[in-house]
Design a protein around this nucleic acid. Sequence first.
DNA 1: TCCGCAGATGACAACGCTGTCAAAGGAGGT
DNA 2: ACCTCCTTTGACAGCGTTGTCATCTGCGGA
Lengths: 380, 380
Amino acid sequence: MTTLSKEVGEDARYDPEPAHHPDRRGPLMNRRPGIKDVAASAGVSIKTVSRVVNAEEAVHPETRARVLHAIQQLGYVPNTAARSLKSGTGGAIGVVIDSLADPFFAALVSAIETRALTEGLSVLVASSSLDRDREREQLLSLVAGHQVAGVVFAPVASEHPYLAPYRTTTPVVAVDRSRVGIDSVVVDDRGAAALAVQQFVDLGHRRIAFFDRDERFSTIHRRMSGYLDVLRGAGIEFDPELVSSTVDGSLDYLSEAERLLGLENPATAFFASNAKAAIGLTTALHRIHRQDTAMIAFGDFSFADVLRPGVSCIDQDPFLIGNAAIERLLALREESSGEPREWIVPTALLQRGSGEIEGPAAALSVGSAASARFAEGDVA
Amino acid sequence: MTTLSKEVGEDARYDPEPAHHPDRRGPLMNRRPGIKDVAASAGVSIKTVSRVVNAEEAVHPETRARVLHAIQQLGYVPNTAARSLKSGTGGAIGVVIDSLADPFFAALVSAIETRALTEGLSVLVASSSLDRDREREQLLSLVAGHQVAGVVFAPVASEHPYLAPYRTTTPVVAVDRSRVGIDSVVVDDRGAAALAVQQFVDLGHRRIAFFDRDERFSTIHRRMSGYLDVLRGAGIEFDPELVSSTVDGSLDYLSEAERLLGLENPATAFFASNAKAAIGLTTALHRIHRQDTAMIAFGDFSFADVLRPGVSCIDQDPFLIGNAAIERLLALREESSGEPREWIVPTALLQRGSGEIEGPAAALSVGSAASARFAEGDVA
DNA sequence: TCCGCAGATGACAACGCTGTCAAAGGAGGT
DNA sequence: ACCTCCTTTGACAGCGTTGTCATCTGCGGA
């Protein structure tokens, strides 16, 4: 931005007259049209323009028409900054998720954005990268800085005390991972995992691996609970060796798969606890030509149905979750309805082949079809 | 936010007189801290606080420390609405893309968001759904309404005259599809397509299908040009029957693949012109067990490397594109450097198997390795 | 001793909008 | 004729911040 010589000319913003006030502007040259310009053009006061823009009642139809015409002609768009400055709350909602590069979250944000548009709200996205400090920074920037009309976020830290001062004015909804004291939209992790593992049991599997127990996520804890529930119910002893754990945020899926298949008493079925692990595991099984291994993934992913065999998945629909979250947020805007609670979004088990591979004990099994259910609430 | 009793006291601005003003607020109860609160707490004027917040020079170190302490203690976060109202341009950049549910665009936005954060900028996302009117609405909302500091968008309409009034103040960058008069970040569509088709020719293919020529996109036109270039260079006559076209926004990939393979003189190689078509085509070929067909996809997709054979792809890296776009935008903020131009981001051909399947004329071919190249510029 | 100057700080307006209150005009009742 | 009420409209302040200009305090040099 070199110091360009002050060419006045076309830029009517600068008039030489009043030595103070360098920017007393003339009657709109290429400046952005403001409410004042519309008012002048329509021959009314700015307040009347404001009334028209906000669809308030008491405006004479004829006046309204004149104003609308002026708006149209000037291409006037109300300034949201001024609006939110005045009202204390702006025309955007904030979304903080792990990463937009994760298709699950991308789809979730997409659902939110679509619905927000119908409410005339914009969407501010930010990513936490699973970092507590960054989460804090982003949330505060949105809530305090941008004065968003609401926040949907995939929580990282277990508590968010710094949000407290804003909770009274700004609705907050957690997604994907639930937190106490915050309305949370999650899937029935425990029940869905149980469903999958129960299917393995029913098919005669006794050595079922829990693939990738990432300690950082409470969702994974719940899925683990579902896994354990079923084992207990089926009288199968839990074997820690069948659990793979991400340590320091990384896990070599290939060698881990080889370990599980190479155990003295090897795994015959895999429950992949999240989509990333599922992709890694699928890739690994293909690489070592063990597509005969039974597997169910938590979370659908593209191409899960094209592979041979198709990968059976628990369908955790990001659109459904995003929709539930934004609906919840909009409801909270109306009235902060009672105690925060969990909102459970349903899942389904997509049978595609890999989850229907029988286990060694299949012959013995007496078709214990009565799978445990863990329905726990309804959906927004 | 009930009507707190009017404590005037330390807040000298307000005189108790005018009985109107129902919400004269006392010294910060659970109200959001503003610059005034910080000023009062630090015993300085609001201007000094402003100076500290904006890292301006002339502030005594000791004063600065006092102010910083007050900020820290009160948890003060500057109000962006007021800021952008004053400065006329806000702390966010706008991004308008086809859909966030498209992983390509999601990754692109992710790259932008990551870089924006380092500049202290937030990201407002909006989707156009490939609809011109919606594109217009979203762009105007961002530029005029939110007064964003810049816009990155995947253009839909061929012209955007309504942006003109804002171009002087708001930098604009197009991505993925280029537009005249706007700095555009795109990949070398024509060259990359040519690269792929040339590989087919070198492998002895003569019947190369162009799979899914969607007329709506200029990128597809360019890829088509690359395709035609190579055919011409190799002396192969263009056969319109080998081109699949999306009509009315949809194409039945399965039956189309069957048609191409069932021609009297059938296709032996497929160039899938975009990721969606590639996924559809791959699924189709798997379904009819014709994995022996040579194929190269424009645009990588997950699992392209896990399938058998792996799907050879032109790697069109959304992160690279997103990065180039945001860098370009930031550069434009500094100085609107000359004429808008195209910024070409490189691609690579990922050899994974499906693109290396030989054609019928392979034996005859004399290894015409001199593939045409179309290098056309550099990268941001 | 006094002036000038630089560094540090503050008073105040204004950004574009909306909430509050008041005023103007007309209809209807007495 | 007068009063009341309702509808339509406008004047004005103030949201939280920053740019402009003014003020104040020391300090070095004449």
